[in-house]
Each structure stands twice: as C-alpha cells, then as structure tokens.
Design a protein around this nucleic acid. Structure first.
Lengths: 225, 225
DNA sequence: AGTTAAATTCAGTTTTACTTCAGTTTTACC
DNA sequence: GGTAAAACTGAAGTAAAACTGAATTTAACT
C-alpha cells in the first residue's frame, strides 16, 4: 500500500517510516500541513497517517481537503491530545480511526489492517453527527461509543430526520414517510408523539444535547448544532 | 401556504379544501373563471390549483393572466382530459405541473411539495436582508448569526412582509393572508397589533434597525434600507 | 401455540401560541 | 394645544398542541 505519513516529530516519523516499509508498503512522509496538501495534490495514496498538531496548522485541514475532493484515502489521526472533542471532530470530518500518542507501532499496524478491511468490505457506511454515529449497513446507532437499541420505527424515523438535517419535517410528512400515504390519521398524531418520545428518551439517556427539536404547530427538526 | 382552488365539481373541490387545510394551509376556492380572476385580482397566493374545464371558459385564461401580470403563484393544472396537447399548452403558458383526474389527494400534495421545493431551491433557499437571514426550509430566522425563535404567525407574517418588501401592507391584507378571508374581524385589529408587537420585539432584541415601519392609518411596511 | 417485543391507543397533564382586554401612548387634524 | 382615532403595550385567559406513562392491541419470533 501507498502510505503518506504527516508528522513533525522526527523520531516518531522515522520509526513509522521504517516500520511500515518493512511490510512492503510504499511510504512517504512530510512534516507540515503545506507539504501534505501539496503531496496529496500530486499523488493518490491508500492511507494517510495524520498528526493533528502541525507547525503550520491543524491536521484537520487535510481531512477537509480530502472530504471536499471526495478522495478515497483512508485516514488515521494521530494526536497527542486525547480529548473526545478531537476524536469526534476527526471522525466527523471523515477520519477512519484515531490513535493517541504514545502508541506501539504494532498497534498502528493493527489499526491500518482493520481500517483497510472495513473500507474494502464497504461496511463503513456511517453517518456521524457529533457524538452520534449511525451505521446504515448494521442499522445501529451509537452515542459516545455506546450503542443504543432502536426499534424499526425509531430507526427509520431517525434516518428520515438526519436525511433532512436542519429542515423542518411536518408530522404529516413524517407519517407519510413512515406509514405510506394510505394511512389516514385524521388529526391523530398520538403514535407520532409516542415514537418521538421514545426516540428522544433513548437519545437523551446518553447525551444532553437535544437533537430533535419540536417546532410548535409545524413539526420536528433534527439539528446538529 | 395560501392556496386557491379553482374547481367546479363540488365533491372534488370540497375534498381538496379539507385535505389541504389539514396541513396548515390557508385555502380558498371558487367554481368558475370569473371568480378566479377576481380573487387573483384582489389577493396573492402561493399556489393555484386550476381546473381547465370551467363553466364559463377555459382555465388557461388564468394562466395567461398570471403570466401577463408576472405573478409568482405556482400553478398546478387539474384536468379531466389527458391529452398531451393540453398538457403541453398548460406547461407552455407557465403551469408548474399537471394532474389528470382522477387522482389521489396524496398525489396532489406530493406534487405541491415538489413544485414548491423546485421553486424555492431554484431561487436560493435563503432570503437575506442585511443582517437578517431567513431560511425557508429550516424555518429559521437569524439576525447577526444568532437565531431568533418565531411562532407560526410571526414567521408567516415576516414572510409576507419580506415577500412584499418596500410595499405598504394594509392590516386587512395582512389579516386575509394569515387567516384567510373567512375570518371576520369587524374593525378589530387587536391580534395584529399583538403579533406585530411581538415580532418587532424579537427583531429589535438583536438589531437596532426598525425593519417594520408603521404607516399611520394605512398599515405596515418591511424595508431593507 | 405461547412468549416477547413493538406499535398503537388512551387518558390525563403540561406547554405553547393565539387571542382578548384594559389601559397607555402616539398621530393626524382641527 | 386639544381631541379623537389609531396604534401600541403588558398581562391574562383560552384553546390547541405536545407530551407523558401506562394500557392495550398487534406483530414477530421461537
């Protein structure tokens, strides 16, 4: 595989370089943001190992660049900080995994293999909204890495909401999406109230943000912010 | 949304009226060409659902009228004939969609939504007036990047004002747009005063410009400058 | 079949927006 | 400036909408 290593610490960079090269990988490295973006502009890689704290900016820029250009490179973030925010931010912008310094080179290799397998089986089809991660293939939802168990209706409901993130969804539109338009619910939204309530409860058990806002008289809105 | 239904078949007309009213639309209806033109002369609508075969003429006249006056109303033609000619003729004169009887009311609604989305996405979803940004899909209003929470009536009111930016809106026109013409408010504008007051207050909490000017004895005017 | 979970209904409660009202301020016109 | 109509204001009442917990019905899975 062709791997780009973006890391300013000389020792770590050279260790990764030699260690990964032993496994028949083609490795290149650079020490700052500008060089990384320039290299990515010239070549395609299979993997980018990305330090966040770089001398000329944050590694997130690379992620944004790749996401913006719809590039296929797998990215593993390598960061000194172990904050949840950075981890989630990285995964949000499209990173595939996250590694905190210090780490064993063997762990790095294991993660590369794992990410590669996940990407090639194409089951990494996930939607990320802050601490909420929705895996479409597995039909699972995790919040802060703990899975919440949703029923069919709850999951479909959540999907419809996130598919229309930010937009206001009327209760009738919701009903039509979930039950089809044959359903006549003359002014009876009890079951919607019920499902909304249950979905909200499950979400609020693991995060304090209210993602599902009510718009009085209009409907509901799923929001990121 | 404010919808005008032009349909001479009593059953169908009443069905559409009740069905669409359920979705918080303000609906009015008439049964012939003359009334339709008269109503369009008096009020603005968001949508016109237009039957072609009317007792006193062809619905195409309405389309010509709207086109001639450069009106913004979206038009969905409803016709018993399924001839390609009519369809083409209608779309040529400026109809946005075409529906052949008989049809399901759910299909009508789906088309209304689709036409509305097409119309609104074509003309950049967001309305911007200096520091005020109105997002129709999200049903949000931000002033200097902070969101202000508006109720239904406040939001609809604001929309009506900005749609008629610079023009003076009489209180009766405002009342008719927001409540439909069934509402009789014999010289009692208390609720308008109330809503205006609340809307103004919310706006003035975040900007010092008075966008909503009162024209004594006449009405109100939303202005940019 | 029987068991469990999910979907829906129900009745009672809380919340919210809309309207009304009474009192005050502003405006146009004499 | 005085006056009456028009416009505004804060607060209170009211009905609709939304929410809730639990009960019931329905569907799903051995």
């Amino acid at each position: 595989m062709k791997i780009l290593i973006v890391e300013d610490e000389q020792g770590l960079r050279e260790n990764m370089l030699t260690y990964l090269s032993e496994d028949k990988n083609v490795c290149e490295s650079c020490t700052n943001l500008a060089d990384a973006l320039s290299k990515l502009g010239l070549y395609n890689y299979d993997f980018v190992l990305l330090d966040i704290g770089l001398p000329d900016g944050e590694g997130f820029e690379v992620l944004r660049y790749l996401k913006d250009k719809m590039r296929e490179e797998a990215v593993i973030i390598i960061s000194a900080r172990n904050s949840l925010d950075d981890r989630i931010k990285g995964l949000n912008i499209g990173a595939d995994d996250y590694l905190t310094k210090p780490f064993h080179l063997s762990e790095l290799k294991a993660r590369i293999v794992a990410v590669f397998r996940r990407k090639s089986t194409n089951s990494s089809n996930k939607l990320v909204f802050n601490e909420i991660v929705i895996n479409l293939m597995e039909r699972t939802v995790t919040i802060n890495e703990t899975e919440i168990i949703l029923t069919r209706k709850e999951f479909d409901m959540l999907l419809y909401f996130v598919a229309n993130k930010g937009k206001v969804i009327s209760k009738t539109a919701l009903a039509e999406h979930l039950w089809g338009d044959e359903m006549d619910m003359h002014d009876n939204f009890d079951f919607i109230y019920s499902h909304i309530k249950n979905l909200r409860k499950k979400i609020l058990d693991f995060t304090t943000n209210d993602y599902l806002k009510s718009i009085y008289g209009i409907g509901y809105k799923f929001t990121d912010k």
